[in-house]
Each structure stands twice: as C-alpha cells, then as structure tokens.
Amino acid sequence: MLGNLNKGEIVALLENQVIGRLGCHSEGETYIVPINYIYHDNAIYAHSAKGKKLDMLRANPEVCFQVDQIEDTFRWKSVIVWGKFEELQGEERQQAMQGIIHKIMPLTDASSQGPSHGIDPAERANIIVYRINIKEGTGRFEAHPDL
C-alpha cells in the first residue's frame, strides 16, 4: 500500500534520521550531496567546509532536502522538503553546531571520528554552519503488513 505521510509523521522522520540529501541548483547545474543534519523548529541544521556545495548554496539559496527510512523494497518512508539556505553566526551558529555534535557523536564507532569528517583539523574553525528554513514538504510511504 502506498500513501502520504501526515505532518506528524514527516516531522518524526526528519527528527529521527541523521543523514539526508541536499539538492541545490546554480548556473544550470544541479548538485545533490549527502549531509549530516539535525531537525529543529521547522528547519534543517548542518555544517560544511568551503567548496562546491557552499558556492552553489550562496549563489542560489533555494534548496530541497530529502530523507528516508528504508526497511526493504516494500517498506519505506521518504520526505522531501523545500526551503531556503541561511548561514548562521555567533551564538546561533554555536548552538546549532553543538546540536549536530550531540546527535552524531553517539553514532560513531571511535572517539577520533567526528561530525566534521573529511575536514582538515586546521580548518575546523572555518566550518560554515547553516540552516534550511523549511517552506513546504511532502512525505510518502509504502507498507505491506503481510510481508
């Protein structure tokens, strides 16, 4: 059975996952990349080092974000939201980064792994923390209770 997720189910899925896919578009190119994130108060919070993703987000802050929970081919949930990218500064940046760390660190296998994987330790102070203010969203599911 295919169906639509209600608002509560959409929020629950966004709150319970930690990896989603961010889609951005700039100068005729579309780019989709997996990111670690947290959901809070109708927004997605994430971080990034400088690079293609940030260049594109700054050029066109209108984005989409997708997250899913897949049990198998016939049992899954998926949410897509659309929103606007915004860089965070000061206390707001610090609080968002702490939220990301607290959600992701318990999921790592070793204490040396961190939410800023792939980022040179010398560059960690230059990490950009951002929010995607959600404007709209939709969710779908497939479930077959007999499977």
Rank of each mutant, 00 (worst) to 15 (best):
N4D: 10
N6T: 02
G8K: 13
E9F: 07
V11D: 07
A12Q: 08
A12L: 06
L13V: 06
L13G: 02
L14E: 00
E15M: 07
N16M: 06
N16G: 13
Q17T: 15
Q17R: 15
R21T: 08
H25N: 08
H25P: 00
T30E: 08
Y31N: 00
I32L: 15
P34A: 14
P34K: 13
N36C: 12
I38T: 10
Y39L: 05
Y39A: 06
H40E: 03
D41T: 01
D41E: 04
A43W: 07
I44A: 02
I44F: 01
Y45D: 02
H47M: 13
K53L: 15
L54Q: 03
L57G: 01
N60A: 03
P61R: 05
E62A: 10
E62S: 10
C64Q: 08
C64W: 07
Q66L: 15
V67Q: 06
V67S: 14
Q69A: 15
E71F: 15
T73K: 12
T73V: 14
W76F: 10
W76G: 07
W76N: 03
K77W: 07
V79D: 04
I80P: 00
W82Q: 05
G83N: 03
F85Y: 07
E86D: 05
E87I: 06
G90Q: 03
E92G: 09
R93S: 02
Q94L: 15
Q94G: 15
Q94S: 14
A96P: 07
A96Y: 00
I100M: 04
H102L: 13
H102S: 14
H102G: 09
I104N: 01
P106H: 05
P106I: 03
L107P: 03
T108D: 00
T108R: 10
T108Y: 08
A110W: 10
A110P: 03
A110K: 11
A110D: 10
S111N: 12
S112L: 12
P115D: 04
P115I: 05
P115E: 00
P115M: 04
S116K: 09
H117C: 02
G118W: 01
I119K: 01
A122D: 12
E123R: 12
E123W: 11
R124A: 11
A125Q: 14
N126D: 11
V129T: 12
V129Y: 12
Y130K: 09
R131D: 04
I132M: 03
I132C: 05
I132N: 00
N133F: 08
N133L: 06
N133K: 11
K135I: 08
E136A: 07
G137N: 05
T138W: 01
E142H: 14
E142D: 09
H144I: 11
H144D: 09
P145Q: 08
L147I: 12
